[in-house]
Amino acid sequence: MGYRVSSIIARRRHPAAGYAAIAGGLVLAGALYGALAGGPASAAPGQSSASPANGRSLFIQSCATCHGINAQGTSQAPSLIGAGAAAVDFQMSTGRMPAKEPGAENTRKPVTFSPQQIADIAAWIQSLGGGPTIPDATQVSTSGADTALGEELFSTNCAQCHNAGGSGGALTYGKSAPSLVASTPTQIYEAMVTGPEAMPVFGDGTITPDEKRAIIAYITQTRTEANPGGFSLGRTGTVTEGIVAWLAGLGFLVLIAMWLTAKRKDMRIGGEGS
């Protein structure tokens, strides 16, 4: 659900945003109706309705093969004791967990668990050894957040991996920092406090909750912002600009030059210059 909403937000910078917004609104309304009609699955993650016992049985079915029956970790995967509900919610709500195969870098993929199931597992893991909890709505609220401070913190602590435009970037040995286009505010928050994969941890001691809101506001505002200069070219910078200059710029002009100088079919009249 979160995935769909934010991807619509991300496209708001497109000129056809109005139509997309209407279409998105319809889809959202339909999805909400479906979720409500579906009953208990509508519960938001982190709410008190989460059932650790149900989470444990789900965990044993889907996670214990790698993480161990008591989440104590195996040679395949780390211990989750003390990882906290935030880590579970981040990994599962972005589809990274359950992983396709152990060892490889996990990337965002379609979510296979319902929000309620994720909340249940998160609640169980939280009950094992504490750890970062799932942020509530006020913690990730961007209203009144200082986007200028967000820019300062983002460019100093995040852009080196995720790119100034949030489009992601390469790390060592084939790993990569993901694009932030699809990340919900909650996921951004969870990523900061849990440090998934190669990402370092930015706990509340180093980046305060208000600063986190500023960063989230900066990210969400930047990605939904229109591109005033035309198509964004993926916001990847000069590399694409150079390719466009050569292929589109020079390519087009060479075609025109060929038209301009093509041999004429009509009769040639000879003459002599000076």
């Binding site: 602590n157 440090g195 370092p200 941890v201 930015f202 706990g203 001691g205 180093t206 980046i207």
Partner: peptide, 9 residues
């Protein structure tokens, strides 16, 4: 303020 291993600032 930097309790979690893997923290960076």
């Amino acid at each position: 303020d930097m309790t979690a291993p893997g923290s960076m600032i």
